[in-house]
Design a binder for these strands. Structure first.
Lengths: 190, 190
DNA sequence: GTCTATAATCAGATAGAC
DNA sequence: GTCTATCTGATTATAGAC
């Protein structure tokens, strides 16, 4: 985010950062505006309401994160074993979250707190992300049953999504944490 | 929670349920009061402020949950291997969350969103809980290093704490989910 | 496209009767 | 111990100048 970005982009970036940092309940339009170098009413030139702004952040976070993961997995050769594809996806997800992408971290932080009807709409976009993981788990463990794989997927995503809340730059790198998370889950799941 | 409980207890129970269900940002005193069979201003006879009420719910949740886990672990004989103690703790934690204890679920749901100074105070109580897990992990994996065990603990707690957000009564029982989570983590960690 | 000024709303909190 | 009535403050949102 820099001064030459359009007002709309600066608002979105600032909102993602605030949502990721403070959560939905504590996110103030005035603070989002300040981060974008303007005052609160100016936001309404770009977005119809606070809810609409939040929804845009969620959709962008889900879309970018899914695209990043899929790209990292699909670059692997067609002979790559399913477990390796799953490993690549886990590492891509954690590295994306810890790389400082505020949009994906905002989704991880705020998704559960979204108001009812917005949640339904965001959930529709989230299904692409969720189904991709589902397919990776099915491929990696074809002998398992759906119920257990669903539980494993929920546990895995919660585990990975938590990283931005406790990670602090320093001793361990994002890559190290991503690899540890992948080892932990794959050893446990397979 | 029933009609013969004291007003204070009914308020705490209702607050725990609302916090667990809607999160901190959407928790309204009017709704908490309604769940306790009274109107919002009556809450102030029992609590000084909304924040004080929330803090009591957090402290009760942490205290009860910790006590429950410790009891389930310490009942095991002194010859019990550390890995089995850790397994018992994981199962106890998940079963407690999924048994319908609104206080521990409220902590899992709302902890990250607490306002600054309250978070510090709640964190002091949370340390007892967190340190107990730390010691269980150290005992179960004495060869590991602190950094990796800390990451493993954070990942594990996030994974277990997520259960109330996605669990729905039906196909799988709390005990089945608890056992699957324990298998997943122990196989991955050890 | 951003500002100043202000409206509209809503939730937490207080006063005082019963 | 709970109620009705009210206050206060904060925050989203609008109107209109520049």
């Amino acid at each position: 985010m820099n001064n030459t970005d359009s007002g709309r982009k600066r608002i979105l970036d600032s909102a993602a950062f605030i949502l990721r940092t403070k959560g939905l309940g504590a996110a103030r339009l005035s603070e989002i505006a300040q981060g974008a170098g303007m005052l609160a009413p100016s936001i309404y030139h770009h977005f119809k309401s606070k809810d609409e702004l939040v929804e845009h952040v969620m959709l962008a976070g889900i879309y970018n994160n899914t695209r990043h993961i899929v790209a990292k997995v699909e670059v692997l050769g067609p002979e790559t074993p399913p477990a390796e594809r799953l490993r690549a996806a886990i590492i891509a997800h954690v590295e994306f979250l810890l790389s400082g992408d505020d949009f994906s971290s905002a989704v991880a932080r705020v998704f559960d707190d979204l108001p009812g009807e917005m949640k339904q709409r965001v959930l529709a976009a989230y299904a692409t992300f969720d189904n991709y993981w589902r397919d990776l788990l099915v491929a990696a463990s074809p002998a398992g049953n759906d119920g257990q794989r669903t539980v494993a997927r929920k546990l895995m995503i919660a585990m990975l999504d938590s990283c931005p809340t406790w990670y602090r730059a320093g001793r361990l790198s994002p890559t190290q944490i991503a690899n540890q998370a992948a080892d932990l889950f794959l050893k446990g799941f397979l």
